[in-house]
Nucleic acid binder design. Structure first.
Lengths: 185, 185
DNA sequence: GCCAAGTATCTTAGTACTGTGATGTTTGTA
DNA sequence: TACAAACATCACAGTACTAAGATACTTGGC
């Protein structure tokens, strides 16, 4: 699991800061740099986008915790469950990891007996990943609960709001993906 | 850098799959499980939320690449820049890493001469992290460009849409955070 | 038919963390 | 005065990846 939101020493337990008041010896030097309202809007969007994703992800990961698989592995199983066998390259595009990462992840799922590789007739470079019967049973058993966990995690918005958010986020994502990545300065 | 969106072999370069047609020997077995529309809406939201965050993050990380710091380190510098010295515990809450992670990250920033630790008068257990003059200069120099990169990354939405998305995401995030995490089954 | 270029996967080494658990210091409370 | 709880730190094994390169196969042009 990548970052199931830190659980270590004294992580969250809220309000207790009463000592923050005594400002440090050195001046706070909080020379808050002025920013345009347009920048402010964009930065705020980036922050809440990240926070929202983290918050929902925490529920998704909590749901998967204890199943002996990572969220990324879950993503592969889910993709194979809903789409049938996929070329490893297509798995890569779907879950957004490096090519080496796909090899690594599929190796582990194979070791767990959930996935198998199949040769691709017609292109001997390529290979499919496919669920084994055990893998199909496994994902079929846990997916419904998983869907409920997500449903619950996003239930802070009404269905209409969820649809509105989906539309905005889809367009945001598409636009950002289409945009060429920063011209190295 | 954690996952600057894979750059490896044949990652994105679109449509070329013409070999996907010959379905694998084994039956596709695509027993697509029926789902309620409510579930469908929630799952879709989760997917586009993650995709959008990833897409924007790719720009953010591309902007930081080559500066010899990771995005997490950047987050610390930015927090100190905009808020002044912070207790290490507050840094932890801000950037969401483990307690050991804060020590590790601050150590590295100290080694780079960008941050220093200061004792906290009034609580001798606690310590502040604060920018050094070099650190302030560094972040002050790169932050404006960073803000522009974010501005650009989210420019697929109009300002009004950005505000609407911010409102929805803020409420989504708050609700998800407030919700107790899945009851371990 | 030959070969360069392209595509698919795998291998290797490295990185940025995490989690656990222990240690020391300090603080607020009983 | 004791004692639990908070803050930071350290040590260390482990994890989920990444980037870069190697290998194997395929394709398109000549």
């Amino acid at each position: 699991m990548k970052r199931p939101t830190p659980k270590t020493r004294s992580a969250a337990p809220g309000r207790s800061r009463s000592r923050t008041a005594p400002q440090p010896a050195r001046p706070a030097a909080s020379a808050a740099p002025r920013r345009s309202p347009t920048e402010e809007t964009a930065l705020k969007l980036w922050v809440v986008l990240t926070r929202a994703q983290d918050a929902v992800k925490a529920h998704v990961e909590a749901d998967i915790a204890g199943l002996e698989i990572t969220t990324t592995e879950f993503g592969i199983l889910e993709a194979l469950y809903h789409r049938g066998p996929l070329l490893l390259g297509d798995v890569q595009k779907k879950i957004l990891v490096s090519s080496g990462g796909v090899t690594y992840l599929v190796d582990r799922l194979v070791a767990k007996g959930l996935v198998e590789r199949q040769d691709c007739p017609g292109d001997r470079r390529a290979r499919y990943a496919a669920l084994t019967p055990a893998g199909r049973t496994f994902i079929g058993r846990i997916f419904p609960r998983h869907a409920q966990a997500i449903l619950r995690a996003v239930s802070g918005l009404t269905k209409a709001e969820q649809l509105a958010a989906t539309d905005l986020l889809r367009r945001l994502g598409h636009a950002a993906s289409a945009l060429p990545v920063a011209p190295a300065p």
